[in-house]
Simulated assay, not measured.
Amino acid sequence: MSRAPVVAAMEGSGFYNRNSSLQAAGIAAVLPLWEAAIQSADPGGGDLVIADYGSSQGRNSMLPIRMAIDALRAKVGNNIPVQVIHTDLPSNDFASLFKALEEDADSYMARNSHIFPSAIGRSYFDPIIPAGRVTLGWNSWTLQWMSRTIEAPDHVFARFSNSPAVVDAVAKQQADDWQRFLRARAFELRPGGKLLSLFVADDPGHRSWRWIGGEFWGAIADMGDSGLLSERERLSLTFPTNARSLEEIEAPFLNDGQFAGLRIERLELMKGSDPFWGDFEATGDANKLGQSWADTMKAVFKPTALRAISPDRNGEELVEELFSRFASRVAASHQEHEHYLAAVVLAKSS
């Protein structure tokens, strides 16, 4: 069970933007919490700074950032400059982000002036913005990613491994990552600032992502049995993403209700929706359902999968075969995807 740093971002060339309806559905469900966080934030004096932590290619950030701009300006005046800082890994497709800002009809830049967007290509597990600058922080669908991979011999998501040692290593890594993230955001938020994070959660029955993850692992195992993937490649195809329970999210705050100057204002578990199931029920097209899930998973995991393939082999061809087999397995075992999300609103002490 080795550990390796996580360096891959989402699939580029705008592919993630075009195949992130699952993420958009989760974001829509949490917008009332975001609105409440915006309204209760203290804008302070001077410029307004909104941080978009884990922006990817920007499509799903447009509405939340626009909401924040409009609400904050309603408090302090329409001519107050607003700086929007998008952050993601250095390998992120920032070109598609800036193209969306300029061309997307839903861009928060449209019909607004004195808005100054920028991007930072660094991991958010350390501070990346000067101290006390951020008024509002938005962070969605990223904290299931760990800073390091915990490899599992029997599942694409290590938390679902049958190895107690692997499961324990995941829990320890996620606890460390969560505390690192919190310390960094506490450093960056100004007093009275708010941060909302939305990420993949375990439900009490531990059903979240078991079917989809199991079918993906089945595709990996099939290719291994066929001699298309080596044992080393199969092991490296453990994706560094795992769900958290509400108890794990709360853990750093249990002593006195605060951690690094942050406190939890809201913490909710919500059932996510399957954006493809309604269409399947209407059409009965299992192949389309499988391809929709393959494109969704490819948008998130293809760059990570490519890194698992030995550099002396045709990684592109092998990874495409992997997603094709995954699509076929989903089509053959079609069911509604059951998954859960956690939403937490954090406040910086005044």
Rank of each mutant, 00 (worst) to 15 (best):
M1I: 02
A9Q: 00
G12C: 05
S13F: 00
G14I: 01
G14E: 09
Y16V: 10
R18M: 14
A37C: 02
D42K: 07
D47S: 15
I50L: 05
G58Q: 03
R66Q: 09
A68W: 01
D70R: 06
A71Q: 11
L72K: 10
N78T: 01
Q83H: 15
L89N: 02
P90Y: 09
S91Y: 00
N92Q: 15
N92L: 04
A100L: 10
E102N: 07
E102G: 06
D106G: 12
S107C: 06
Y108V: 10
F116V: 07
G121Q: 03
Y124P: 06
D126G: 09
I128Q: 09
A131Y: 00
R133F: 01
G137D: 10
W138H: 15
W145Q: 04
S147V: 03
I150C: 04
S161Q: 11
N162C: 14
V167M: 12
D168A: 15
Q174N: 14
R183I: 01
F187D: 07
E188A: 13
E188I: 08
L189M: 09
K194Q: 14
L196C: 02
S197Q: 12
D203N: 15
I212E: 03
G213L: 02
F216L: 14
W217F: 13
G227F: 03
E231F: 06
A251W: 04
F253R: 07
N255R: 14
S273P: 05
P275E: 11
A286D: 02
D295G: 08
M297A: 07
A299K: 03
P303I: 01
R307S: 02
R307L: 07
S310F: 04
R313L: 15
E320I: 02
Q335F: 04
E336H: 04
V345Y: 05
V345R: 12
A347Y: 08
